[in-house]
Design a protein around this nucleic acid. Structure first.
Lengths: 343, 343
DNA sequence: ATTTAGCACTCAACAGACAAGAGTGCTAAA
DNA sequence: TTTAGCACTCTTGTCTGTTGAGTGCTAAAT
């Protein structure tokens, strides 16, 4: 059976209506929301065929219809009308991000917060990660008599620091040694080079300085490994509590998943470029089988970098949210790219 | 009516039993949990008097008794036996904290996480805050052509940084100027001195350098204000979902409160030294009227500094949790004090 | 060949009735 | 003062009947 124009309109109307009311939509109610007039009986016939095709389903015999996951899929792919972002919203989004535009990690943190605030769902963002980055410089700053901070800056604008402690008093001279030795050895190398093994061999090659530098080396290793990881920022988990289509146990399952950053970031990073919607089972995650994920990868300097995403009930206002996310991920990419250019 | 020894024992037994079962406890069940033998009828009489005194209450006529908030208060103040922390637990707690013992903020973050993990409730911790701290030094590190990082170290071992952007290319010389000028003017002063007004007047006094330094000044102001604030670390909010005595709406109210860091930190910081339990209404917060807060202030170098706390349902295992928290807040205070000493 | 009106049918949701069970309060005896 | 016994109360679960929304089907209308 193929999808006639009228069926398409009816499916779209069912989804639209269901999204706003949250109630199964019946034939009568639907009639009032169509841009052509037919009787409820006709609509009933069409709906029953849509159900046969697997696009609608019935909670029980005498209830209205709700979209199936497959129905949402068709809706999103071909029926939905994207609601363009108003310039006011654009200004609002940009104003949220701008204050932290000079630090990738803070920026992505702000993105998650903004996204959660705008959508009222749980929001996630991942930082670009360090896989393609080179070490540009390593700085040392004394922070107390026996502690100092190691800071690594990368070619992609990322930057991390770690305070470390030595068992002897630090002096500017010692810090200068740290600086000279480590920049000599590491500057220009990909961050990924700095593995425990590499640091070990580096330490071995330092001769009598090994002892002096071991704390600093460990700190640098630590920071480098931190830089390699794509950081996962999470916000608005609480928002999930306020959606009546998510039950207690459903919420718990989602929260469980959200508390495992590695899996979360893997799910996001394996999506291809652009905007993707994973409806229920499509994510292949049992914990998310009743909820939807909207992911948008963002590009930095033309290369696929991190991702932003929201997680919520399957019933959500896709049109509005998707266009907002599209704009947001564009903004993020642009800001991070600019950050790179000015380096 | 005064509290006979037998009444005290019965009240204690009711609370103990209720804490483990979560069910209203009846006279029969209670008989088996007393260290003396009386009939259920006697127990019934005693319980009915305890109810009259406002220490127990009945969900409905034909149910067992549960402790009232006043009952919990008496239990905690005079009946409860604290369960000492085993040395194994001590080692476990210390092992969780040690890795981040060199950075107050990370440490308190770790404390919140540890506390949430141990108790299965929502945990909060606050950093000491900068009210008593002096600026020890301000460092500048170039992070890209036009961006640099300003780092303030304080006399209390706290440290914060902020990346800022200039509209001109930075050079080591310029950074040296930043360093010299700002340390000359600000080092040794209380962090609290650095207000917008103060920075403004400082800027005015710099003459032709004002333009050059304005971005750096703003960054320093920002960092100083950040340092003044006691940071609030939150963890384990999700844990609340798993307690059956907290209803959906109850959880929401708590989460609402938890999402307002200023009020949260105010509540904690207004508690006096040591370990305090706020049962339901005692916190004077409508949002917390059905839940309990256990707060423990910790001392750094003998002075009251921050606080750690957990928030959960009124029915919790006070004995165990309170002793754990007592030990934990002692550890935190000790670590932060040591951090101070080595400076 | 569609579309529509009409009608019987189904099922969730709600409310009332009833039995079972837990626990109490009271009374009278020990 | 304590205890045994008993009537009483109130929740919980189950069962029943009713209501109403919405369907599917059929036969008439377009």
């Amino acid at each position: 059976m193929e999808l006639s124009e009228r069926k398409r309109k009816i499916l779209a109307a069912v989804v639209d209506l269901y999204i706003v009311t949250g109630e199964p939509v019946g034939s009568k109610a639907l009639c009032d929301n169509l841009d052509f007039t037919v009787s409820s009986a006709t609509v009933r016939n069409e709906m029953s065929e849509l159900a046969e095709m697997g696009l609608l389903e019935q909670p029980h015999t005498s209830a209205g219809r709700i979209p199936s996951q497959k129905g949402y899929r068709v809706y999103i792919d071909t029926l939905m009308k994207k609601r363009p972002v108003t310039s006011e919203e654009q200004r609002y989004i940009d104003s949220l991000l701008l204050p932290s535009a000079y630090d990738p990690e803070k920026l992505l943190d702000g993105v998650a917060r903004a996204l959660a605030g705008m959508t009222k769902y749980a929001a996630v963002s991942t930082t670009p990660g360090g896989s393609g980055a080179d070490i540009r410089a390593i700085q040392f700053v004394q922070t107390s008599r026996r502690t100092a901070m190691a800071i690594i800056m990368t070619s992609t604008g990322a930057m991390k620091s770690r305070v470390f402690h030595c068992d002897f008093d630090l002096t500017p001279d010692i810090l200068r040694v740290f600086f000279r030795v480590l920049n000599e050895k590491l500057a220009g190398l990909p961050v990924a080079t700095v593995t425990p093994a590499y640091i070990q061999s580096l330490a071995a090659s330092l001769g009598e300085m090994t002892m002096l530098m071991s704390d600093a080396l460990m700190a640098v290793l630590d920071v480098a490994q931190d830089l390699m990881q794509t950081e996962v920022c999470l916000d608005g988990e609480m928002n999930l509590l306020y959606h009546r289509d998510l039950g207690q146990s459903e919420i718990r399952r989602i929260m469980d998943f959200l508390s495992r950053p590695q899996e979360l970031s893997r799910l996001l990073m394996q999506q291809s470029n652009g905007l993707k919607v994973l409806i229920g089972e499509e994510s292949n995650r049992p914990e998310l089988s009743e909820s939807s994920v909207i992911v948008s990868r963002y590009n930095v300097a033309g290369r696929e970098a991190g991702a932003i995403a929201i997680i919520g009930p399957t019933r959500m206002n896709y049109g509005k949210i998707m266009s907002n996310m599209e704009y947001l991920s564009g903004s993020v990419g642009r800001m991070l790219t600019e950050l790179l250019d000015t380096e």
